[in-house]
């Protein structure tokens, strides 16, 4: 065991940041990190931070412009929407749903994909052939179309949207992990572990997974941005998140018809999506520069 420890790079966890720093990825993108953190705070804080109940209609304050614009009021800093709901509160509530769906989709899709990829890569043979052909089949379907069909089949709602996103993204993880495993498998420390009599699943979990973890993490962070866009695209097509839940994509889709009369209905959620996706991508790129300088991802 001690022989393998040296060859195996330190795992993820607490040392991640330090490793990144040293590896030459440079300074972490401060603004992006701040925005990501802000999103997480908004998602966790939710109701406590929001000035209003996000889905409470107020028919006396419909389409109030942002505070600084003509006709705006300080009561609604970013204005109100077509049912008199406070935009700021809806953005905060939207952060929760957008992050929840994206996060859950990435986590669950990642877990499934990693497990299957690990199995395929390590076990090889028939298992690998079957799993990889299924992966190919899923990857050959354009993901938004697959999502659309699944939504039509399963119905809308946050749970189903997450499920749909999981179904559309697990295959990428499986493919990535399998290729990582295939290359790691041949390395000396894994061979040694096998000689030392460790069971296959122990080898896979203790030795192979930690080595593949960095690539998985990078893919996951980049995937959050992709998931946010997928969710908003589904909402745009009318089959994503549905009221009374609030998401940025939904707010954008519902405010879209009002684009010429009330720009703030589309600009704020659009901005939120762009900023969030850019931040997660920047974070992912930074990690990638550290872990994966040759751009295998």
């Amino acid at each position: 065991m001690s022989a393998t420890a040296e060859e195996r790079p330190a795992g993820a966890g607490g040392l991640l940041g330090a490793r990144l720093w040293r590896s030459g990825a440079g300074r972490p993108p401060l603004l992006a990190t701040a925005i990501c953190l802000l999103m997480v705070v908004a998602a966790l804080g939710g109701g406590a931070i929001a000035p209003y109940v996000p889905d409470e209609a107020d028919f006396t304050a419909i389409l109030v412009p942002p505070a600084w614009a003509e006709g705006g009021s300080l009561a609604h800093l970013l204005g109100t929407d077509q049912l008199g709901r406070d935009m700021l509160s809806r953005l905060i509530a939207g952060a929760r749903i957008s992050l929840l769906t994206a996060g859950a989709a990435v986590l669950a899709g990642g877990t499934i994909g990693v497990t299957l990829g690990l199995a395929a890569g390590y076990l090889g043979g028939v298992v690998e052939a079957v799993i990889m052909r299924i992966v190919d089949a899923f990857l050959a379907l354009p993901f938004i179309l697959m999502a659309l069909a699944f939504v039509a089949a399963l119905g809308t709602g946050v749970g189903n949207i997450i499920l749909v996103m999981v179904l559309t993204n697990w295959a990428r993880y499986a493919r990535l992990v399998r290729s990582e495993v295939v290359s790691i498998k041949k390395r000396d420390f894994v061979l040694l572990a096998r000689v030392a009599g460790l069971r296959p699943w122990q080898i896979a979990l203790r030795h192979i997974l930690p080595n593949a973890l960095t690539s998985i993490l990078v893919l996951a962070v980049l995937d959050v941005g992709r998931a946010i866009i997928l969710e908003s695209s589904l909402s745009f097509l009318g089959v994503g998140i549905q009221p009374p839940d609030v998401s940025w994509g939904l707010a954008l889709a519902e405010g879209r018809t009002y684009m010429t009369v009330a720009w703030w209905l589309t600009v704020w959620p659009g901005l939120a999506i762009v900023l969030a996706v850019m931040s997660f991508n920047a974070l992912g790129d930074w990690m990638k520069a550290g872990f994966d300088p040759r751009g295998r991802l």
Binding site: I229, F236, N281
Partner: peptide
């Protein structure tokens, strides 16, 4: 590049219609 990847196409499409068609 990072902006291009983050902008949903329905958003940029609408903006282009708004600017160059309307």
């Amino acid at each position: 590049a990072s902006f291009g990847q983050a902008v949903p196409t329905f958003w940029s499409g609408l903006m282009l219609i708004f600017l160059f068609a309307i």
